[in-house]
Design a binder for these strands. Sequence first.
DNA 1: CAGTGAGCGAGCTTCCGCTTGACTT
Length: 543
Amino acid sequence: MAGPLVIVESPTKAKKITEFLRGEDTGGASPTVIASVGHIRDLVSKAKELPEGKQKEWWSYLGIDPDDDFKPYYKVYDKKKDTVAELRRALKNADALYLATDEDREGEAIAWHLLQVLKPPKDMPVYRMVFHEITAPAIREAFANPRELDQLLVDAQETRRLLDRLAGYDLSQVLWKKVNRGLSAGRVQSVATRLVVEREREIMAFVSADWWDIKGVFAASSEPIPFGAKLIALDGVRVATGNDFNDDGALTRDDRVILNEETVRSLAAELQTSPFSVRSVESKPYRKRPFAPFTTSTLQQVAGRRLKVSAKQVMSMAQSLYQQGYITYMRTDSTNLSAAAVTAAKSEITERYGASAIEGKSRTWGKKAANAQEAHEAIRPAGDRFRRPEEVRNEVPPGEARLYEIIWQRTVASQMIDAIGETVTVRLGSLTASGRDAEFSAAGTVITERGWMQVEDWRTDDTDAENDDDTERRLPQLKVGDGLDATEITPEGHSTKPPARFTEASLVGKMEELGVGRPSTYASIMETIQGRGYVWKKGSALV
DNA sequence: CAGTGAGCGAGCTTCCGCTTGACTT
């Protein structure tokens, strides 16, 4: 009995969708769902693969004929011959064709290529079916309301493909001639390399500046809890710190004074015996939103940092979790969660932290990358009920379990209330015997409502540790005029540091921000620029 | 007549993006 044939990209998706569409009323048999397993054909890359008579043309190495309106020559991948044969067989027994590839530029093109290769009979209805989440209602809805193929999007993809081939192959050939055979250049890898090179030049050109300040440890007589504070002003003029210098080692503003070692040491000696008092106490509310659910790029960055693994390793663990049904699709540029996911997250929150920890309205996040196509959901635990990280730990290897936990945490945290608290800034000062006025400052944040921070400890991400403001630190209760004892006065010398080198994680982040490369290629680009010897790893830094 | 060498031709490398296993580093 004939039924419709539905073609998707991923075999794992095909299995799920088969379930969701089983028994769907089609007037015939249940739909058959088969995966194309990605692209099925591409431009030819060898002259031999061109038709007879075209193999000797000057452009044969390109697979594109610039003299014939840039006519492209395609060839089904050898590895996909079996898949295509299977699709052809299935199509013979079908009464309708649903092209259900991803709704993005590449997915639209795959649908078009499938049509070109499979050539369904003229009288067979052909539909383009699209969805953004693999849930039963979403799939049924998509099946019932298909659209037409978007030829403009197909053309856009083909243009993208041709330009990458024309520019990439020709540029690479220049490198073979001028530098070394086997080298490569292209729209993405060359930009990635350039980012690393420019950062390295910045570092080389960087001129370090030296500056001194004083760190003090104080305690109030009324409440003897010691706390640290830093010298911020001398005789009413702010003391220059790291942020006040540019890359050439010069001051960026003229209302700062640079202290040298001599000044600071003599001042420190005087301050040892000098009386301090509180000059002001200022309190500001502190509030921090949770982070957006994971995309491929943010997952690679966060998991790369926390688990100390490469972008490629993150993706291979994620792939394994995806195929076992633990998480949703791992190549995505979207931060959207389906309604089912939000419900699942909220029930986890209620169970573990109480309903009061749920953010009232579901949170959404804007696109971060300019060219995001959002064909999938964000990366999240799969299903209408999330698997417990504690259970998953007993079912998969430790690395995958940690990755699952990170994904679970971020997804659940994303639907929780803000963390709120108070940041208190205390100014204290002293007038020395020789008449110099030194002012110190201390800041402390007390979080009164941890909100989403109960779930995700995000501070481990900050390798730079610049975020003093966000570190929780408790100051004693103080009021203006309170006397203080300095238990320690330590002069400290500092020098400004050049910008940090990229890591795989931070480079992927930068590329996504610039719209260079796609979720499916970030990891391989990292391999390419290292494999060609353009960039190498020094620890985790890229040089 | 056998060994040598010049000269020619063929084949290889490369882009980016979408999917997974089947492979030997």
